[in-house]
Amino acid sequence: MASSTAKPFVFPGLPISQSLLPIPADPKRSLKLGAGVQHVPPSTITATSPGILRIDDKKNVVWVENNHRRYVSYPGDLVIATVLRSAAEQFFLQICPHSPTVLLNHLSFENVSRKTRPQLNTGATVYARVLSVDKHLETELVCFNPSTGKADGLGELKGGMLFDISPGMSRRLLLQKSKEQGGIAILDILAEKLNFELAVGLNGRLWIDGSTVRETMAIGKAIQEIDQGALDIEKQRKLAGRLLREIGKG
């Protein structure tokens, strides 16, 4: 999407003006409505949530972006979930505090059969992808890529620590070029000096496994600080420098 100076703010209850919506090259292609937008027949589009209206002209999609605290699941999202209990066929997991449980089939892992099903205990942390979301059914997760059958890094997260961040921050961290597109430079700077593994869940959870607990804590706290303080790249550099000095790797 080309840069646009106008980033329209939309508010629930008011129709979104036709001039803001993308004009498809092919008039037969329908407009797709993403999160936070609804269609009111016959031809009005209104926002259901306050935020910035984002438009993808190529895909002909509109959606509303905002940084809400509670994550709303969407198919294809990567999430970090906690195992609550195991049943005959599936695990019951939780992706947000107090929210309805989600399902993960025992066979939704790489290279498993009925005889080699994974053993996940209550409290285990799982990195998974959202497979299906339906308001009338329970959300289902998978721990492998359905098209290749490979795990692609999904599965149980052993060791490490979980940190809470805002869903908006996790979206930024998961961008393909998180530095150029998301304005996150700290990971690249820290990776030059430290060894750590990191998994980002769009549900606002961040899992980090550093070589020591101290390093894990330091990285997690730094990312939370960037999230809360809306630090720019320059401030992130300073923060990373201070952090590395504190743990003696500066």
Binding site: F9, G168, A230
Partner: peptide, 15 residues
């Protein structure tokens, strides 16, 4: 609400 949204989206300014 607009001010709140703009604050959380402020990282986008230079990008």
């Amino acid at each position: 609400i607009e001010a709140r949204t703009m604050h959380s989206e402020s990282w986008r300014q230079n990008i």
